[in-house]
Amino acid sequence: MGKEKLKKYIPYTFIFPALLLLLVFSLIPILVALVISFTGLDITGLGNWSTVKFTGLTNYIQLFNDPTFLQSIGNTIFYVVLGVPLVVFLSLTVAVMINLSQNKFFKTMRLLFYTPSITNTVAVAVVWSYIYNPSLGLLNEILGKIGIAPIGWLTDPNVAKISLIILAVWKAIGLNMLIFLAALQGIPRSLYEAAELDGANFWQQTLHITIPSMRFSIFFVTVTTIIGWFQFFDEPFVMTKGGPLNSTNSMALFVYQNGFQNSNFGYAAAGSFVMFAVIIIATLIQFKLQRKQRGEE
């Protein structure tokens, strides 16, 4: 009898350690963040909790009057609008091209394209900062050889955002290409054979068989990429610190700067919730569009 009772607890011993860690470091923090976003918690509050005051919606109201925050929202939307289509289109293009053949050359290509995805963002950002250097960098040197004046890749407020997008797209192609390749290999051969009998060429087959069969993986990549770009952080943090003139600041970087550089924990937590809300809304819109598309078929 006692042994039977003990047996009931065994499943919980397997899941308990992981669940406890997720509870402490993911689920409880959400509630804590929500609570402190309504307070003026800062570095003094950290030492003496009794000085922390409940401030209601003050943080949220202040956020939407903060030009830096509004600019970081604008920048983040710019990143998403430009970056997401580029990542989806380019990784799909590479995947379709690599899928053309199974020989050694094409397999090697797959490896080369994947490499940027596994490497450390900091290391990569350091390397690209050097490449982007206005006077010593590789890029301006090449441009100079063909007679183009040097570009301030990271110092010109109009160009810096695009420079960061180029780097992030370069880094994101590999992983998404693999997801697309896995989906491509799941398309039944018979579809292509039938199309070939009808005389469809490679491009027609791609347009009428490949792309429609990949609808789900395109949706998956789009959603995860959108979520990722809304949290754009590492590249601006390492390369530009949000500058010049705040032109590359993102919402995620704004949260970090206010939380850990200015120690305005309450204000930063409110910012992070605005960001969370934006991500949820964007994801819901995606799901709606996907459902609508399915309904039209």
């Binding site: 470091f25 409880i28 950290l46 995620a252």
Partner: peptide
Amino acid sequence: VLATMMIPGQVTMIPVYLI
């Protein structure tokens, strides 16, 4: 467990630091 996947790192960053 699955729900924790949707939470952006920036939201938990500050409370985890406080904890």
